[in-house]
């Protein structure tokens, strides 16, 4: 990283993006949530409330759906990571931007995980753990082969750096 004014400036090698399938996975979750929202609307329609309420509910739900659908795409595109010589960088977020730098020597554990929707779409998450609970270094939306490679590489580097202790 150079010392330009941008605290989130990309490293020399640039950010590696995550798979767009992550957006699909999150949109599938959104649709599942909206099954409940629609069920709520049906219940609302069966009660003797003024029609106006139902309209307000539907409009609000639709607006929230469109906005979330759109923001998911942007959020997923905002994810990026970079493996440098001594540390791993993870960047994310649109509204609140985040950059985490984890030196390989500080890693305690590297996790690979994938929920049911992730497995169905063929993506997984690599998460780094250090002795600090606040280290927030998860890279979602990796293709399984990439994720396994990344995990093995990180674990090997972590061992290399801590071996001398």
């Amino acid at each position: 990283m150079d010392s330009s004014a941008d605290a989130f400036a990309p490293p020399v090698a640039g950010w590696i993006p995550v798979s767009p399938r992550l957006a699909t996975a999150r949109r599938v979750t959104l649709v599942l949530v909206y099954v409940l929202v629609i069920a709520g609307g049906v219940v609302l329609a069966l009660t003797p409330l003024p029609v106006l309420w139902l309209v307000v509910y539907a409009v609000a739900a639709l607006a929230a759906f469109v906005w979330t659908w759109w923001i998911i795409g942007r959020r997923v595109r905002s994810f990026g990571y970079a493996e440098r010589e001594g540390d791993l960088l993870v960047v994310s977020g649109i509204l609140v931007r985040r950059l985490v730098v984890v030196p390989y020597g500080r890693m305690q554990m590297v996790d690979l995980r994938a929920g049911p929707i992730d497995r169905w779409l063929g993506i997984s998450t690599v998460q780094l753990h250090t002795a600090a609970a606040t280290t927030d270094a998860a890279i979602p939306g990796l293709l399984p082969a990439d994720a396994a490679d990344l995990r093995d590489r990180l674990a090997a580097r972590g061992e290399e750096r801590t071996a001398g202790l």
């Binding site: 989130f8 609140v96 950059l99 280290t135």
Partner: peptide, 23 residues
């Protein structure tokens, strides 16, 4: 353990950012 930089929308508006040292 790690260094974190965060920037909320209001911080970005004024060219500010927060640096965390995770312990």
């Amino acid at each position: 353990q790690s260094v974190r930089v965060t920037q909320g929308p209001w911080e970005r508006r004024f060219g500010l950012a927060t640096v965390h040292a995770d312990v």
